[in-house]
Amino acid sequence: MFEWQELLEVLSLRDYNTRLVVSSAVLLGAACGPMGAYLVLRRRSLMGDALSHATLPGVALAFLASVWLGGDGKSLPLLLCGAALTGLLGCGVVQFIRDRTRIKDDAAMGIVLSVFFGLGVVLLGFIQSMPKGSAAGLESFIYGKTASMVQNDFFVLSGSALVVLSAPVLLFKELRLLCFDGEYAAVLGWPVKRLDALLMLLLTVIVVAGLQAVGLVLIIAFLVIPGASARFWTERLDQMLLLSALFGAFSGWLGAALSALAPRLPPGALIVLVASVGFALSFFFGRERGLFIQFLRRRFLMQQGDAKDDLVCHR
């Protein structure tokens, strides 16, 4: 049973590198879960999509700025700041287009994601044509580099996760009202715009921190899937937030551990597929809204209806 031994070793994080990768994935999943739950509830699930694509020009600009200032462009804090800046700008543009024109949410997100990403690609093109600069490290922001995370990445990720996770705990009531009925919150005197901006800021923090780990397409899955899965199990917001964090963390743990067993397979993709399987299970067997329970409820109602019909007939 050598293989079982190996599996056990990986799942229980014996090896240092595995431990680093797996715990990063767990933290990222746990922090993305509740953020995604808020997005799903506000019907803005793909905001993460627009946001993650909008970070690319920031990464490239930060790189260029650092090279112009004489550095080698690989300073992680600078790159992350750049990513966060254009990410936030992207969110702002989506909001602006939505509020000030006839164009709807989805198209506004599409415009931001494609144009910002295009700009990012243009800037990466500049960098590639530079004699001394090399954009090699920047690719990790697009595709992720889960398997080669280093300790620094881990610290950034755990710090961000902590900040992001504190919001639903501290501001549970405020965020609930904002998401359910923002207009009413405004009448009560809550600074709705600032709360909204705070939520976007937290989203940006976790997306930027997670980009390197799973890449900018797969981070969208981390945001959407756990939140949507949790909705099938509960009708209470607090439980939904908790569950989405657990689902995210579990997908991160299992996916990253599996990829340690099969080093050739991209870890980001494995994590997403684990999450997808979790979604499929929730979709069918979720305790509150799964298809199975819906089917049972319908049958129950129909039987009740039949029983009533019988009564009428026999009378």
Binding site: L39, V40, R43, R44, S45, L46, G48, D49, D106, V217, L218, I220, A221, L223, V224, I225, G227, A228, R231, F232, L265, P266, G268, A269, L270, V272, L273, S276, F279, F283, R289, L291, Q294
Partner: peptide, 24 residues
């Protein structure tokens, strides 16, 4: 439709899953 999931969310779930599958 069946899961009463927001369209954007279900779109996100499906395409990221497909993309991950494609990468593998």
């Amino acid at each position: 439709r069946l899961g009463k999931v927001d369209r954007g969310a279900s779109m996100g779930i499906v395409f990221t899953t497909f993309f991950a599958l494609g990468l593998l």
